Amino acid sequence: MCLAGVGTRNGGAVSGIVVHSPEGDDGGPVTLRLGPGERVLFGRGSPASPVDLRLADEAVSRLAGEIRATDDHWQLSNLSTTHGYLVENPEGAGEYLRVPPRRIGAPIPFEFSRVVLPSRRESPVFFQVFAPDHVYLDPHAFGGSWESRTLTAYSLDETATYFLVLIALCEPWLRDRSPVAVPTTPQVVERLRGHTACTRLTARAVSSHIDYLADEKLRINVPAPVGADRAQRRNGKREAVVALALKFGIAREEHLALLPPRIGPAATDGGV
């Protein structure tokens, strides 16, 4: 195993990536975290060629490729001699990269990527990679030397799906209501269903976006209460994300315009 934990964050910059596969050896999802300089080997695997991320498809090479994290991006090596891999940007309008066979260390610029491998099955073999935080300057800081400029504490892409998930979670408070609970994952899926970028959004994908917000973007440490089950831990993470986003003005009333129009009774309750 090539993992040694999540990378450190120095000077406000976020290091490390998250690799997520919806289907692991036991049929459940697999999430791996890499710090700068760490790597993950992926493929079908064998006793002679062990891998960190196993993709159980006969069209996938035993040792198909490698993901390596750096300080500010990640690299993909295609170890196959015959198959090219696609790296899609789910947040873009059909934007993708093709990594040809035997290509080593291809830099991937997307903040959120879907790596697709050729398969003999009807559904493709894929996994997702959440990249190191893209760092932005404070929009009000102009001029001066690079060293004197101020970086934003929380670098979020307001065009990304994870930001839509954040606004959907915060919507009740942004509309000046007094909810008794943070919206559930199924409620977020339903709320975003009318958005053109979210027509295929699933509960599992929403959970991954919430994990990404909490662990990588907002850097929240949410300790699990003793004896808490999975649902309770998930509720605690959603509540912590909403509390921080509202406290620091990351989610604001103006962001409600990003959400699709509400329909039904809720549309008359001060909605748009």
Results as ranks from 00 to 15, higher is better:
residue 1 M to H: 12
residue 6 V to C: 00
residue 8 T to P: 05
residue 11 G to Y: 03
residue 11 G to L: 07
residue 11 G to N: 08
residue 14 V to T: 12
residue 15 S to F: 04
residue 19 V to A: 04
residue 19 V to F: 05
residue 19 V to Y: 06
residue 26 D to M: 01
residue 27 G to L: 05
residue 28 G to F: 08
residue 31 T to M: 09
residue 41 L to G: 08
residue 43 G to F: 09
residue 52 D to C: 06
residue 53 L to E: 09
residue 53 L to T: 01
residue 53 L to I: 01
residue 60 V to D: 07
residue 61 S to P: 00
residue 62 R to C: 01
residue 64 A to W: 00
residue 66 E to Q: 15
residue 67 I to W: 09
residue 77 S to I: 08
residue 78 N to P: 00
residue 81 T to L: 13
residue 91 E to D: 15
residue 92 G to A: 15
residue 97 L to C: 06
residue 98 R to C: 13
residue 100 P to G: 10
residue 104 I to M: 14
residue 104 I to R: 15
residue 110 F to I: 06
residue 110 F to H: 04
residue 121 R to M: 05
residue 122 E to N: 08
residue 124 P to W: 06
residue 125 V to R: 10
residue 125 V to T: 14
residue 125 V to F: 07
residue 126 F to S: 01
residue 129 V to G: 06
residue 130 F to R: 09
residue 133 D to W: 01
residue 133 D to M: 11
residue 138 D to A: 09
residue 139 P to K: 12
residue 140 H to T: 15
residue 141 A to M: 07
residue 142 F to C: 09
residue 149 R to M: 10
residue 152 T to E: 10
residue 155 S to D: 15
residue 155 S to L: 02
residue 159 T to E: 12
residue 160 A to M: 04
residue 162 Y to R: 15
residue 163 F to E: 04
residue 164 L to M: 08
residue 169 L to S: 05
residue 173 W to N: 07
residue 175 R to I: 00
residue 179 P to K: 03
residue 182 V to L: 02
residue 182 V to T: 05
residue 184 T to V: 05
residue 188 V to S: 06
residue 189 V to P: 04
residue 190 E to A: 15
residue 190 E to G: 10
residue 195 H to M: 02
residue 200 R to Y: 05
residue 201 L to W: 00
residue 203 A to T: 11
residue 204 R to K: 07
residue 205 A to V: 11
residue 208 S to T: 13
residue 214 A to E: 09
residue 217 K to Q: 14
residue 218 L to F: 01
residue 219 R to M: 10
residue 222 V to S: 03
residue 223 P to N: 13
residue 223 P to R: 11
residue 223 P to C: 13
residue 227 G to S: 13
residue 231 A to I: 11
residue 233 R to S: 11
residue 234 R to V: 13
residue 234 R to I: 10
residue 236 G to K: 08
residue 240 A to I: 02
residue 241 V to H: 06
residue 242 V to T: 10
residue 242 V to I: 13
residue 245 A to N: 02
residue 246 L to E: 09
residue 246 L to Y: 08
residue 250 I to F: 02
residue 257 A to G: 04
residue 261 P to A: 03
residue 265 P to N: 02
residue 268 T to F: 14
residue 270 G to V: 01
